[in-house]
Write a protein that binds this DNA or RNA. Structure first.
Lengths: 321, 321
DNA sequence: TAAACTTATAGGAATTTCCTATGGCTGGAA
DNA sequence: TTCCAGCCATAGGAAATTCCTATAAGTTTA
């Protein structure tokens, strides 16, 4: 079935004849009749407008042109063979690439997933691209990225889009986060909504979906958040919080991975939001995407059961170009 | 007729589709029907056991495997195109090689022919091989050299061998040669055979055809040559002659090209011997051989009319490996 | 929902490749 | 010299492949 080779017959014959030094022996080796070789070589010679073999008497020898041409033919064969192996490697996940899009918030939460993927499939180049959450959906749909990782309910738009597969990675609760210097640092009791309204906050700006969740929570509980600083960089906000009197709202997991941050639960709790993985589910799916989604579901299970938290700075992969 | 391209259809289609981003447009550009492309690509994908294009909706895009494979396909196409050009170059004499066999005597006489050839066809590699005259015939017949240059009547053997073409380059008279220090240096009058018999000679050994000519001459005139030194290197002999009292017998032209040598004609004259070019004339003849024989006949005509003699040391080409 | 557009499929036509049989030529053996 | 064995070329029909027309199935746009 798949035994069809793409390398041209004429060149295959050329190489065989040169190797065996004889049409007849080459024909035997190739399991075809000798006239087939004569014909193919004749056509090739006509195509190149030059004899490739010097036939005189009982011996067949490459001409000067033949010697030169055969080198190129060999290299062409090598290229096609290498191409075949390379495709095979992609299927085996020992090569390839995967383009990942995520938001500046989710990168804090799923960086270790990328590390796992990279150590499991070191041959696959990971290309990560940070972008606003709204763009992720578009990017996946138009195939400019392979997979997206989003925070909060995705695809809030009109189309439920059966073409896009979404997998739940885990759920996350938003909480108030403060630094060492904050008077509430280490507080165990829940904070009321009213108290929350009085905190000076450093928040992501309204381009971010997470901010909308926060604003929505405030609206529902009829308070106005006291926003001292807005930024489009979560990094900046965390730096601000860490050693100052301001507070912010982030997923609880982020607090656990950052040194010098303390979480304070609210009462009533902020809504739980899902971290989800999504990718195109129509037509061809690359082995890398399948492998990533498989690994991600393992990873989310492990995360829920074991929750091995390492305190650290943001993962460097998240800042790669 | 010669419009047949060797590059596989399937790859040609693959590249066209990738370039146009569409089966339909590629089919238009290639002037074939669109189903042909579908079919070829399908077969290629089956052969590689991997999809190469991601078809979803109205857009066609290379898969990861496709992107990787197409690079190799492009390189293979480049190789075959380069091979085609290279063969063309050989036909145009802008590339190729020519293997020349000659004897240690003829190299002194035809070195400038090689220089002419090299300056006329600088892309053709000249490979010269010195060998005994008897071997030249065999080497040409079995195609281990392309052309031979011999001194004296060639192919004295049984077969007139209609397969070998021989061209006369020029005729050459043997003469006595002496150096500066020799008492006869500069003598204009002819030397008798008896006087010749009394000269102390440095001669090539009997492996050389020229030596046989000399011995034959002596035999015919009933003298015994007075051989002081034998050598298998003409170079050695000329060095010996140049500053000492010995004499030797060489073609007259050699004397004219060597500093400090003087020629003395014999009476009766030694027989004129031909310098000839010979090469296989059956089956395929490489453009380089044809060009060499063409140039050689020009060169021999020019040599006879103009005879531009340059005094110099032996041509370095003659000593090339 | 219809119209426009794109790729896939099916089946027969056209082309190419292949095989058998044979011819011509060369080189070695009788 | 003559014959025979070995090798490549040629011819013509068989087999396989490629190609084309017609059409289906699907998506996108109006």
């Amino acid at each position: 079935m798949a035994g069809k080779r793409v390398f041209p017959r004429s060149l295959q014959y050329l190489l065989a004849i040169a190797e065996h030094g004889s049409f007849t022996r080459a024909a035997e080796a190739l399991r075809v009749s000798q006239p087939s070789l004569s014909q193919q070589i004749k056509q090739l010679e006509e195509s190149l407008q030059s004899p490739l073999f010097s036939r005189s008497g009982r011996t067949v020898r490459l001409t000067n042109a033949g010697e030169i041409y055969i080198r190129h033919a060999r290299r062409a064969r090598g290229e096609l063979e290498a191409g075949r192996r390379a495709v095979h490697d992609v299927q085996n996940l020992s090569r390839g690439s995967l383009r990942l899009g995520w938001t500046p918030i989710t990168d804090y939460l799923t960086c270790s997933l990328l590390e796992d993927f990279n150590s499991r499939y070191p041959g696959i180049t990971l290309k990560t691209l940070e972008m606003p959450q709204g763009d992720l959906e578009v990017a996946v749909a138009e195939d400019s990225i392979d997979v997206g990782i989003a925070f909060g309910k995705p695809f809030s738009g009109e189309s439920p889009s059966s073409e896009i597969q979404t997998d739940l990675l885990f759920e996350e609760t938003l909480c108030l986060a403060v630094g060492n210097a904050h008077p509430r640092a280490g507080q165990q009791v829940r904070m009321s909504v009213q108290e929350f309204g009085r905190e000076s906050l450093a928040l992501l700006n309204t381009n971010f979906a997470m901010r909308h969740h926060i604003d929505q929570y405030c609206l529902e509980h009829r308070i106005a958040p006291n926003v001292a600083i807005e930024s489009n960089s979560l990094n900046v906000i965390i730096e601000m919080i860490q050693f100052g009197p301001l507070a912010t709202v982030v997923p609880k997991s982020i607090v656990r991975t950052q040194c010098g941050l303390y979480s304070i639960n609210l009462s009533p709790e902020m809504p739980r939001k899902a971290i989800i993985l999504f990718y195109r589910n129509v037509g061809y799916m690359s082995p890398a995407v399948l492998a990533f989604s498989r690994l991600a579901s393992d990873w989310s299970v492990r995360r829920l059961t074991q929750t091995p938290i390492r305190k650290r700075r943001p993962c460097p992969l998240a800042e790669a170009p």
